[in-house]
Design a protein around this nucleic acid. Structure first.
Lengths: 250, 250
DNA sequence: CCCCAGCGTTGACCTGAATCATTTCGGCAC
DNA sequence: GTGCCGAAATGATTCAGGTCAACGCTGGGG
């Protein structure tokens, strides 16, 4: 009986049985390889809203994968101004920007009750020397992070406020959808302030845009709860050729 | 005699003897490993201003390293609007954002007479399975690209025009310096239009800022020629804790 | 149950940078 | 030299979005 329970627990906490495997590191690995990966992954107890996964200056040791919940990653400039670099949903990897240094250059703060897997980078690197498909997947994930950031550069560099918020909402929509949730109804785990910060807009502007979108019949907004009522039109607002927001993204 | 000439040519075109090795892929590799890398690197004849290294949609096969000259990387959004993602100087790698896909999502255009090394990615990946230090260096370079883009997100998201241009000039200054050129005197290989596009500003604003900087005694500008006359003050304008613009950057 | 703090909303106003319209410059062909 | 063309500079005007200042929820603690 007890043994049985242990088995179930064992199953629950392996990459093998993780519903996020297709979005996360294990993508493209075969059974055996996933088992090897499994051996080095550490699964931590859930964290509470406001907890930090790591902070600027902390020694870099591991990458992290979100299992449930959400995480915001931000850096602080000289004046202590915060710039949010991304929001991470389940199945997304974070910490990759620290690989080239000894310490984290950003901080990662949990937005709600969240559990993450910790993947010691040294060991991951060793392992990926022996598992070509793992190495390959790592390269892909790093590259996707670059793609995401580049898409964001376009948004911040050229797009007006309206399109920024639309892009943001669509990104969330797609990502929720890919995780098996509704593409049209979800809760924002971040504050208006965070959204504004991320999109390079003032909080007030974000507020006004939510109202406008609602008035235009695109959304129904109730605080953190979002219902997209006209997805096609929201897409049309962004109409960019949709060079897909794929995996690791924010 | 002829043989001798061939020898010299051979030496000139190896990573081994490339003055950029310390900025480029070979960093951290020992002699033997560099030789292996050397075998897969293809050195192309110089290209002319305006030529494309690759375009959006081209099949992804290789990464490229700039040997001499400069390259601008840009993407086009739905409306055909160009967004410049970076400028690459000698020793910098480009094309890394295409790793996760089959095709390039951006285009790379040469700004002046430029020569590049082409590194077939398939072979690089195979090789890096056998050479831990190469794998490691690749991870580092990808990570640095992410760091660069994140730094740019801060600039575009929060900084006023003045600070954007200052940041840009300082980045160039540092990068030229690291390559053994003057940190205070250099030529811009890109147009005002490109600078504005990259920094999310109108051309006119860039023009006015150059004038203002000159009037303030920070610079002497003469078309493409820049002489920084007060580097400390330029740095002060940016004063961010300088979480260094390291390697691959733009 | 009520109070308070923090988030969110709303409105009035201001400003930095975009846009528009010329003009000037510098390189190049003839 | 002269004329031409694209890049750059400059000035006038406009406007998107920021800032400032109240105000209104709402949810947690006493």
């Amino acid at each position: 009986m007890t043994a049985h329970v242990f088995d179930i627990k064992g199953l629950k906490t392996s990459c093998q049985n993780c519903s996020l495997a297709e979005l996360c590191l294990p993508l493209g690995l075969d059974q055996v390889d996933v088992d090897r990966l499994d051996e080095i992954v550490r699964r931590a107890r859930p964290m509470n809203a406001g907890d930090h996964l790591f902070r600027t200056g902390d020694a870099f040791r591991s990458l992290y994968a979100v299992r449930a919940g959400s995480v915001k990653v931000y850096s602080l400039d000289a004046d202590g101004e915060e710039q949010i670099l991304g929001f991470h949903l389940p199945g997304e990897l974070l910490g990759m920007d620290a690989i080239s240094g000894k310490a984290h250059a950003c901080s990662a703060k949990v937005l709600e009750t969240t559990s993450v897997c910790e993947i010691p980078f040294e060991r991951l690197q060793e392992l990926s020397l022996r598992l070509p498909s793992l190495q390959s997947q790592l390269f892909r994930l790093l590259s996707q992070e670059i793609i995401h950031d580049e898409a964001m550069l376009l948004v911040l560099g050229k797009k007006p406020a309206e399109e920024r918020l639309a892009t943001f909402l669509l990104s969330l929509s797609e990502r929720f959808h890919r995780r098996g949730f509704s593409a049209t109804e979800f809760n924002l785990s971040m504050s208006r302030h965070d959204i504004g910060n991320y999109l390079g807009l003032a909080v007030e502007t974000v507020s006004r845009l939510f109202r406008r979108f609602q008035d235009d019949g695109l959304l129904e907004v109730q605080r953190k709860h979002i219902l997209i009522t006209d997805l096609p039109r929201l897409r049309a607002m962004v109409h960019m050729c949709d060079h897909a927001e794929q995996g690791t993204a924010h």
